[in-house]
Design a protein around this nucleic acid. Structure first.
Length: 204
DNA sequence: CCACGGATTGGCT
DNA sequence: GCCAATCCGTGGA
């Protein structure tokens, strides 16, 4: 197997930059979770940005609560929330203390630990090849495949459990931009970013 | 204490 | 394409 995991771990200085810059730069990077014997990893192919100051769709908008406290920390931590009584979604906290800025990981392309991801998602083997593209093609799916729950909210991304590895920067012309998905407020902000034509996107 | 709605998903029409 | 499932965070009484 190609050694996807030899690259260097992203440091706090990467995360503590401006929200949208971090969001775009996260595309193509390798999201990693150590899981006992397994190393689960995937290439980040779709993200969305959320901002506490003026973005009404953000959980951090207007107020800090116990749940969203981690979003107001300095960049470089994980924020995980539970929604619709069924799904977890994970975010990368960015920027400076007090900003309430974070990037939602919406989809990844599986790289290593794929059999474990399949087990976590479906509890069985794949029925067909097509199901590979249903493994991590959404924020809830990705958390399920990586077995990430709100117990992981607050994890330090410069630690050894969950982190992101550097990679070559994705070219601007390869990055698609759109409005965010599934929200009802601040719907017009063009803050969804994705790698064009990647088969693991949550939608085209 | 109670009511309400959600940064989604998958199944059914 | 439409919509129910399902639990918890949040805010108001």
């Amino acid at each position: 197997m190609k050694n996807y995991l030899s690259a260097r771990k992203l440091r706090k200085s990467f995360y503590q930059r401006e929200l949208v810059d971090v969001a775009r730069c996260l595309l193509g990077k390798t999201f990693v979770k150590k899981d006992g014997e397994n190393i689960l990893s995937g290439k980040i192919v779709e993200v969305e940005a959320y901002h506490g100051d003026f973005d009404e769709a953000a959980h951090s908008f207007g107020r800090m609560t116990k749940r969203t406290e981690i979003m107001f920390n300095t960049g470089g931590y994980l924020y995980v929330y539970f929604t619709y009584g069924a799904h977890h979604c994970c975010n990368v906290v960015t920027g400076k203390a007090g900003q309430g800025t974070a990037v939602l990981i919406r989809a990844v392309e599986p790289l290593t630990g794929i059999n474990k991801m399949i087990k976590n998602r479906f509890g069985r083997k794949l029925k067909n090849e097509k199901e590979m593209f249903n493994l991590t093609s959404g924020p809830g799916k990705t958390c399920q495949a990586f077995a990430i729950t709100r117990n992981h909210s607050g994890v330090d991304l410069t630690g050894n459990d969950i982190f992101i590895l550097n990679s070559k920067k994705i070219k601007s012309k390869e990055i698609g931009v759109s409005k965010r998905i599934g929200i009802t407020k601040s719907v017009d902000l063009p803050w969804r970013f994705f790698i064009k034509d990647n088969p693991y996107l949550s939608r085209k």
